[in-house]
Structure formats: structure tokens, C-alpha cells
Design a protein around this nucleic acid. Sequence first.
DNA 1: TACCAAAATACAATCGATTGTATTTTTTAA
DNA 2: TTAAAAAATACAATCGATTGTATTTTGGTA
Lengths: 339, 339
Amino acid sequence: MEKHKITIHDIARALNIDSSTVSRALNNSSRVTEKTKTKILKKAEELGYQRNVLASNLRKSVTNTIGVVVPRISRHFFSSVIQGVEETAYLAGYNVLICQSLEQLEREKQIVDTLVANRVDGVLISISMETTDYKHMQSLKNNDIPLVFFDRHCGIPDTNNVLIDDFKGGFDATQHLIDEGCRNIIHFSGPQVLEIYKNRLKGYKEALKMNDLPFKAENVISSRLMEHDGKENAKRLLDAGFSFDGIFFANDVAAIGAMKYLTNHGVKIPDDVAIVGFSNEPISRVINPALTTIDQPGIEMGKIATDLLLKHIKKQNGPLKPQTVIMDSNLIERLSSKK
Amino acid sequence: MEKHKITIHDIARALNIDSSTVSRALNNSSRVTEKTKTKILKKAEELGYQRNVLASNLRKSVTNTIGVVVPRISRHFFSSVIQGVEETAYLAGYNVLICQSLEQLEREKQIVDTLVANRVDGVLISISMETTDYKHMQSLKNNDIPLVFFDRHCGIPDTNNVLIDDFKGGFDATQHLIDEGCRNIIHFSGPQVLEIYKNRLKGYKEALKMNDLPFKAENVISSRLMEHDGKENAKRLLDAGFSFDGIFFANDVAAIGAMKYLTNHGVKIPDDVAIVGFSNEPISRVINPALTTIDQPGIEMGKIATDLLLKHIKKQNGPLKPQTVIMDSNLIERLSSKK
DNA sequence: TACCAAAATACAATCGATTGTATTTTTTAA
DNA sequence: TTAAAAAATACAATCGATTGTATTTTGGTA
């Protein structure tokens, strides 16, 4: 068995022609006659030729690869986005590098560095909860690598973003609780460095205001929204003897942690406390009672973000203006909020 | 702002030395004196030099990248494995390419082709449910790319595998149901092309045999184990008036689909029917009653598989013999099986 | 001071494909 | 038939880093 990898030079030698002609034939250039092309393709097939992508990329300084960075691949919303990204990217002939920051700024920086080093053609990113400085994003700009934020963005101007209307999501969730009769609604929010959580909170406030309900700062609790955060803060509420009849969670996972704790401590959901989450994780259909939540169109978002990124990668007619797309979200009513 | 990328030649020119010396300095070779190294490093820093990984990889014909192929990144078990893979790989200085086949053979082939084309140094794979021919794996062997199967492997000899003891898992699950008093146990299995499902079934059979319970072929139902498969097959059982007091599911997702259907149709879990799943998805702790299941050490498996792969990539002392590691699994008792 | 070994650095080929330019071949038209 | 135009192919540089070999420099010793 031959160990040596077949190159265009091997094909050229075998046919007694120049390697540049082989290269052009394999790239279907019009500068090579059909007859020669067929001959070359046949010989390439025969020798089992496979293009060396590394060499090709080096010469062309293009990788046909985009990087997508998410906090965690296991979150349903993010894996949906990734699916949308892959579908669109593959159709356009691009490969996708999937990376997870695990909500750690250090890893996020490391990932961006690696993507830059590997000369990806563009990057899609949803930032971690720890991301407060944006130097690593600057490195993308310095290297002229197009960047699109999706869902979790930085609040900086002149960037491309594909976002959910978090304000509306927060508003809808809260209004729904009010419609169900809640008058004393707690909001479990995420790290306030992230725009999405700020906006969900704004929506919450706005709904209260529209219904002439008082906003109380102590009714807003911020955490990293993991399951144990939900649980611990539920405990704190109960222990402190807080009175409330509804909770709007900025994500489903924290909601579920809290629901388990509340249920185990004699709180009836939805009768005593109505609950609404955010994200529509599959788990929210399984918990009892099923969790009312805000559905985010993940696959669609992935597609739109990728389309936007590819447009910037190709920018045939000079640089494009940065653009922000806001997508709608959807309240899904289930039993956890049915008074 | 300068657009031109800084290369070692720029550094060499700036210092009036040769680029080979720059290269050696940046690689910390002993052939360059400390004084020169410092000078070069300083200048590199000053000019904002970033190594062109493409060029480096081409020359060294090494990419320091491994590919990991899973059916779906959103499955908790697989994302745990990926986490283990990443931890181990990063420590060893390798990058990880994450790919999902979405259970489709065509995509799996495509992915393997891409990995080969991109000259990854090694591949970890858990095959799709459709994977019955292994030509694409052969392509890895032809290109001398080390390969390790994890969890879902092919039953072919001379391969590296890191597996769960599925036979024992199937046995433990079934024995547990028997211990809880079940005498008429259904088994929901997966596609019989996959070794893991064959082995879980074997474990099921063996447990029946050890307890002098009859094995009935009609008590085994194979499907792709999606949520709706669980639901539909539960419906079929009820509609056909089957009598049973326990079900062992080859995964949690199908179990949950079935549990929802059964509960909605008046079947009491665990009193009427005790249930055991497989995989310990997070969702199984949330459903009511909580699902008894077999826990698989995903992170650990990812680490072990990566260690094995890296050993094969490095194979300093000639080729290594293929190796199969079998890992233990763990029954986690919850309420769904408590009679 | 002169010489030699060892250390440091320079030279040049290479990885494999791409691409602008030059050359050869073919075709067209006079 | 021949010159010019067009088409096909060959030549050679290039992408940026690495590495074996050659050369120069340094330091030690006689």
C-alpha cells in the first residue's frame, strides 16, 4: 500500500503536463480544454487524489470555515441555533467550527484567539455571562474577520446582531402573569452585564407600570440562572417570608430548580405561585406542572445570523454597514401559570 | 492602520537576520542564543506577530486538531463526553472539531470526508443509528488517521473502542425491575444494527433467565428511541391490551415519551408499571415520578477515549495494538421503579 | 597569536496548491 | 499560404513557516 499522498504534481507527471494545468482543471477553469479536463479528472480519480486543503487555504488565504461560539452546546436553544447555522453554512459551501465557552471569559478569549489563528472567514458568537470586556472581539476586527452576535450581544455600537426582542418577551411573560391574576410578581434575572437580561427586566418593569403595579427593587433577584441558583433563591424567598404570587424567570433552568424546591416545600404551582420561564427548553414540557415559557426561534435565528455573516464575508461591493435584526418571540402557555 | 499580516520575514527584515532564525527562536529552539531570542520575541510582540497556523501545519503536515463526531450535541451524554474530550485535548495542546451527524449516515460520511480533507490528526466517533456500512471509516485508515470509537461502535475487529458495559447495564436495569417485583417486563430497544442496543437486550435476556422468567420475543420493541417512538409504542401496547408490569427502556428520551402517554391514560407509575431508562439525561430527574436510569460516565469516557487517541497519534514506538476499554455504568434508583 | 571545536546564524529547499505572465499551439481570416 | 488573434498550456513566483545543510562567529586552548 502506497503511503505517499497524491498531489497535483503526481497527476501532472503521470500525464506529462504542468501542475498548473492540473490545478486549473480541478478547479474547472475555462482556461483548460474539456478534453484535458476529462483526462485529468480521470487520472485524479484513478490515483485517488484528494486536494490538500491546508495548502489550498494557505495560498488563497481563505478557509471556507466559520466559527460559532456559544456558552454551552447542551442548551437546547443554542444547539438549535447551531443546527440553523450548519444548514445555511453547508448549503453555501462553508464548514462550521463549533466552540463552547462554558460561560467562562477566559475560555471565550482562548476560543476567539484560536479562531483567529486558524483564519476562519467569519465568526458568530453568543457571549458568556462573564464577558464584560471586549478586547478579544477587537482582535477579530483587527484581523478583518466579520463578526455577528446572536442572542447574547454586547451593547456596543457598529456591530452586527441577530437578537430576540427580549423587552417584548419580558413584557409578555409579565403581562401574562398579571392577566392570570398575579399582583406580586418576583423576577429572577441573570447577570446584569448581559443586554438580554437587562431588556427582559425592562419588559417586566414596563408591564408592571402599564398595569399600575408598583415596581420593587427587592423583587428582582439576579444570579447565573443555573438550576441551583433557582433553588437557592427560592429557599431564600421562603425563608425570608416573602409574599408573592408569581415569578417570571429569565430562563427555564432556574425556573425548574425553583419549582422543584417550592413544590417540595408545600407551595402549590400554579395556585399559590404562577410561574413563567424563558427559552422553552424541552425539559419545560416534562416538568409537572408543565412550564409556561417564551419560545425563541433558534434554528431560524441561526439561519439569519449565518446569512448575515456570509453577506459580510463576501462583501463584494465594498464594506457593508453593520446591521441589527430583531426577531420575535412567542409566549407558550402551559399549566405552571394557569390560575 | 496597516492591513498587511506580519510574518517571520518581516521580523527578520526588521532585525536584519534570517527568517529561519526567527522561526527557531519562536519555537524556542536551542540553536538560537538567548540574547537573539529575546530580541526576536520583543520585536514579534512589537509588530503584533501571529503565527500563520495554516502555513505551519502545511509544512509540518500536522494540525494539532482532533475531530469528534457524535449523533447530536444536544444529548446530555454526548455533550458530557465532548466536555471530557475538550479538557484532555486542550491540556495536550490539541484543538477539537465538534461535529454532529444528526443520526444520518450521509452526514456522517460527509463529516468524515471533511475531517480527512482537513487533515485532522485523529478522530473520535460515536456512530449514527443508520451506520451499517463502514467505508468512510476505511478512508480514515487509508489516510493513516487514528480512530477511536466511543459508546456507539461498529462490531468490527481491530478497532479502538471505549465503551460502556451495556450488557451489565441491561442486566442491572432488568434485575432491578425484577427485584421490585416485576414479572412481565417489556424492553424498548433501539436499532439492532447498533452493538449497544444488542448488548442491552442481551443483558435483559440474561436477567430474565437468571430469574427463571420466560423471554418473549413480542416483549421487545425496537425503534429509534425518540420521544414520539416511546409514546407511539406505549399507545400500541395499551391498545393491544398487552399485560405488563415493568418496562426497561434503552434510553431516557423514549422512556419519557412513554411515561407521559401512560400517565395520561390512567396507568400509574410505578404502581401499575415500573420503569427504568438508560443514560441519565437531566430530564429524568425532573419528570414526575423521577426516572430510574443507568448513568454513563460521559466526561470520564471522553477523557479516556481522548487519552487513547492521543497515544495512537503519538505512537512513538511504532504502531500500537488496537484496544478496547469497557467502562462501568451505574444504576440510579428513583421513584419510577419503586413498587 | 593561531587554530580548532562548538555554537550561532544564514542559505536554500520544501510543504502543495494557486495564479499572473510567458510561451506554444490552434484557429480564424485575409 | 500566412499573419494575426485566440486558445491552451507551461513557467515561475508565491502563500508563510520549517528544517537540513552550509557558513560564519565565538570561545577556549596550545
